[in-house]
Amino acid sequence: MAVLETGAAPTPKVALRPRGVSRREGWQRRLPLLPALIYIVVVTQIPFLVTLWYSFQSYFFDVPAPAHFIGFSNYTTVFTNAAFRGSLVRSVVMTATSVILAMLLGIAFAVLLDRKFLGRGVVRTLIITPFLVMPAAAALVWAGPMLDPNFGLLNYLLEPFGVHHVAWLSTHALGSVIVVMIWQWTPFMTLIVLAGLQSQPSDTLEAAKVDGAGALATFRELTLPHLRPYIELGILLGSIYLVNAFDAVRLMTNGGPGTATTNLPFYLYQQVNFAFDVGGAAAAGVVTVILTIIVATFALRMFARVFQFEEASG
């Protein structure tokens, strides 16, 4: 047979159907997707289109005049506005710091939880609890009972170390807000990393032992590379949520003192609720969206890598 086939490409005996799926089949496949797709387009994309439209309008809630076209002047304001730029920077700092620190803590906790010890289930329960606490409640409890300069628990616990009635929310506002965000998102990171640790095949770890690797070398050489997609996913999902962080800022410091903790969400909230400037807020929103898209493009590449990982691992 092999000799016979060397001359020409073998011709199939049966006429092949055109490649791909039939049109009918295609629609049968698409149909279940449509409700969710239409829903998400209508609910999330239309407001952004409207935002785009308003960003070229002058429109104030508190002014009876109808919205009217003013060209790029809202954008000019946004770009020349130090408050906007400041809030942008603070958003980046807040998100990056809290996500990275939460991830580092999460890795440490996951390594702890991956070991067998007495009461591991209870310890895990305790560690995931902050993620379950309502962010508004967390913010208020941290702001009051925990961090208050006069009766807060933290000052009491730190008194032996020479800390006396520190007004955390005035002197370390940004740090305090970040601490609360880390506290709430560390459990999330812990769980993702823990899943990664527990999916590591035990025989490669044994192979490493036999190959003469100590605990640290095993972690650095084998565990960390194995955890990489899990860490990336945790950072990505954490960033998605934390870039929108509002509750802690609004309830702990109200953006202050001054603008020390005003991040983008809080800035936009102020624009709409107190300056009543729909047009200005819309322009700021559009700029935010464009910046997010740039960042998200990189993030989506990360997702693509997660996919490759998924396919490779079957």
Partner: peptide, 16 residues
């Protein structure tokens, strides 16, 4: 769509 910050559209959302 999860990455587009919903806060950016809060004003227009209110109007809609």
């Amino acid at each position: 769509t999860k990455m587009l910050p919903i806060v950016a559209a809060i004003g227009p959302l209110y109007v809609i």
